[in-house]
Each structure stands twice: as structure tokens, then as C-alpha cells.
Design a protein around this nucleic acid. Sequence first.
DNA 1: GTTTCCATTTCGTCA
DNA 2: TGACGAAGTGGAAAC
Lengths: 260, 260
Amino acid sequence: MQRSLERVTVIEKPLLEQAEAIIKKSTSEHRGLLIVGLCEVSYRGRASSKLEAGDRIIVVKEDGATLVHRPTDYSPVNWQPPGCLLETRLQKDGLLLTAVRRRPREALRILFRRIYSISVLNLVDRGDFSLFASEEEMRDAIKADPNLVEDGLRIISIEKKVEPGFVDLYGIDGQRRLVLIEIKRKTAGKDAVLQLAKYLETIRSSTNRDARGILVAPDIAKGAQALIATLKLEFKPLSPRRCAEVLSRTKTASILDYLR
Amino acid sequence: MQRSLERVTVIEKPLLEQAEAIIKKSTSEHRGLLIVGLCEVSYRGRASSKLEAGDRIIVVKEDGATLVHRPTDYSPVNWQPPGCLLETRLQKDGLLLTAVRRRPREALRILFRRIYSISVLNLVDRGDFSLFASEEEMRDAIKADPNLVEDGLRIISIEKKVEPGFVDLYGIDGQRRLVLIEIKRKTAGKDAVLQLAKYLETIRSSTNRDARGILVAPDIAKGAQALIATLKLEFKPLSPRRCAEVLSRTKTASILDYLR
DNA sequence: GTTTCCATTTCGTCA
DNA sequence: TGACGAAGTGGAAAC
């Protein structure tokens, strides 16, 4: 069939009978689908939901991942993760598309009353994706250039085990004092401060040495700010952006330079 | 223009020049778009990312929400939330679609090398969406029928303020003892146990009365199980599903009966 | 497999 | 609008 060689094959306003055949064939061949139509949606599984009739965009991917998108909003209103079992059945009341997953047991049911268009996809995507300046990369940036946090700081270890978990960075400052660093990618809250305090307490009692606790984050919540003062910890503002820049200079010719 | 009255208007294999005009018109009119094409994507903002060339599905919604989907996986590889500013520009190297948001300042750049199809959407979706048996609804269910947790239990207040936060339910059992209830929609971990223990400690010291702590959840993690015993707390298995059923009986003829 | 924690979390609610 | 917690969170890494 020549059409299947096309990256996209569009069928406009198919009868539900036609749509049934197209969808069955596409899903059996593990092809992606874009369906725009009038439908009702229900879900049963980790929770239960019901979506009354309306026009929606349904994305069915090669791996079975199924998304039901309304005309607005970022999130799909209903969905099914990759690896689910897809079934299509023409009923009296419409064309039923079900996506079932076991473990957890859950089922998505899309009942099409009308279909405006179906796009059968045959896409090729081998492009690499890279994301930077995650919390881990912030650690790397600080490790590469501890001056980001404080002049004279030296990092001894990262993700050091300190009960009851791991402290992000562990170092020694210019006055040879121990420094614990807790990193947050975004606004740090009380939890981060308390976590750091807990680690600090553990370190102080186990080493019998004083230690500084520095919370590194792009910003700090008000309540956390007060806690910082109360617990005599410190806060050092540092954005992921800055870390990405530092990483781009420190590590290698960066992909950042690629981005305009 | 008659075509705009259609729910879906498909343009297959447009020249990039044509695509530019179509996309500009559609976005200016706040219409949704489905674009399938060969593109490169970059993002700068809360983090930075670069996606090399490949075939993708781009969903642009009426509210500006923009999703870049690869042929597999649930999550969009890149996106921009609703309310962003969309711009289209034809360049020598392709058709550039940018979605910019302020606060946080971030930009999504999609450079199309080729476009396989564009679907201009004109969708109508007024259907109500209802999700049930969320954690909040579990609270409601237990409040409506405290026997779900334990016979003779009476609920005094919900979301009661207990430093350092709020305890889900606050009640009195058959022996007139205070009962704190922590609810989790899914498997409860140590964090839930520790949280409950903290509230319990606060209550015990502030009221000088003993109190029971009951963790209500569909399941409990192994480590949390051990903690429960150690801290002399209690665990009561209760599924969101069960809560939904109870709510359906208690509240009104349920939407549950609707499903399936 | 389960547990834990991060996320360009998103999404809701509430002060 | 900001802050805080829940989510059918999803996703990755650790164990």
C-alpha cells in the first residue's frame, strides 16, 4: 500500500466504519495516529473519571501511549501510558477505542460519536535529546567551580551519605570548616532547610566538629528564610541557568552556544 | 472563509511559505493546530535542552499551550504551557515557531525543515470532566462514613491545623480517645508514617492526652510497615475505589453507574 | 521488582 | 500573585 510510505496519511471525515478499519490496521502495525473527533471518555483504574461529549484530539503513539487532549491546557485530560493494549470496536452508539493496561489495572475508553479526521503516522525520529541544568548538573557545576557558592570553598564529596539520607555536597571552606550543601533546583522550602539541619545535626554529633550548612537554590521561600536564620544556616542564591553557563564554560564547547 | 467553519481543515505537504501563512493566521485567531513535520527543537528557561532533527507531532492549542511529541512515550519532549506568546518566522534554514513565556522567562523554538501536514482546528468542547476518589474525596468518604476506618469512630474536623501542617482527619473513637488520621491515595511510605507521628506528638504534648494515629491508605510500603509497628501507630487499608463507592451511595446517584 | 526522589514537574487551593 | 501540597503524577536511578 503506497500510502503507508507517506509520513502522514490523512483521512478526513471518515465514516465510523471506515475509521474502525483504519484504526485497527494502524494499531496492529504499531503506527501512530492522530484522531480529531467528537467523543466521550471514561477511565477506571487508579481513580475513576468521566468526560462528557466534546471535540478532542486523540494521540495514539507507536508504543501504545494514548493521550486525550481537550482544546486547551497543557495536560491531557485522560491518557494511557506506553505498552497498553489497544482495541477498537464499532458499536451502535459509536466507535469505541479502549486502551487497557495491567499493573496497575486500568482502562481508558474513548467512544467516538463522530470523527473529523484521522492521520496515520509513519514517523522517523532518531534525534538525540539533551536536557541540562537539572539538580544533578547544578551539583556538577558547583563541584567544577565551588566559587559559585563561596570563594575558597573546596568540595570533598558529592551525595555523601549522612543519615537519614544524602547531603548534596560536602566540602571545606577557607577556614577549614566542614560545609554541608543542600541543593534545590527551584525555590527552597522549609523541608529543604530542615533536611539540611538534620544532616548538619548528624554531622556535628558524629564528628564533634562544628559545621556550616549552606542551602543553595535559585530562591528561598519566606518561611524557609526565617528558619535559615533561626537554625543559623546559610543561604546562597544560585540559579540553574548560571550553572548551565558555568558548565558550558567548564566542561566543553557547549550545546548552549548552539541555542541562540 | 468557508474552511474555518470546518472542525478540522487539513493541509498536506505545504510549502514552508504556505505553512507560515497558515500558522500565523491560526495562532492570531487563537485556533488550535496539529503540525506533523521534520524539525529541531531547543528550549531555554528553567533548564536548557536541545533536540536534534526528527519527525514530531506538534500540538498548538487555542490557549497557546504547545506540545512537542516524539513518536513514542507519554510525555512531550518539549512544551510550553498555556498563555505563551507564539511567533512564526520563515528563515533560510526553515520555518521557525517560537513559543515564549515570561515568568518564568523561557522560550521554546521549533525549527521546521519540512512539514508533512497541518491541521487547523476549530473544536467545541463544553463537556464536564469529573475525577473521583482523589485524596480529598477519600477524606469526604471517611467523613461521610467513618466506619470505613473503624466502627464507632466519629470525625470531629477535617484538615485540622496541627503543627507543622494539617492532619487529614481528626476524630474520637468508641473509647473517647483522640484519633488522628493520615490519608494517602496510594501506597503509604515512611514519610506518611513520620508525618502522622509528628502530628501525633504535637497533639499529645499540647493536649496532655493520649491519642491514636491511624494511617489510611490502599497499601503500605514495607519499610513503612516496620515503622508503624515501632512507633505504635496503626494502619487501615482503604482503597480510593471503595471510597468512590461509598461516596456514590452517600452523596447521590453516582457517575460510577454511568461508566461501563 | 520495589523504593526513593527529581521534575522545564503540573495542578489545585488558599492566604 | 505567591506559597504549599497532591497527583490516575511521570521518570530515572538506586537497591
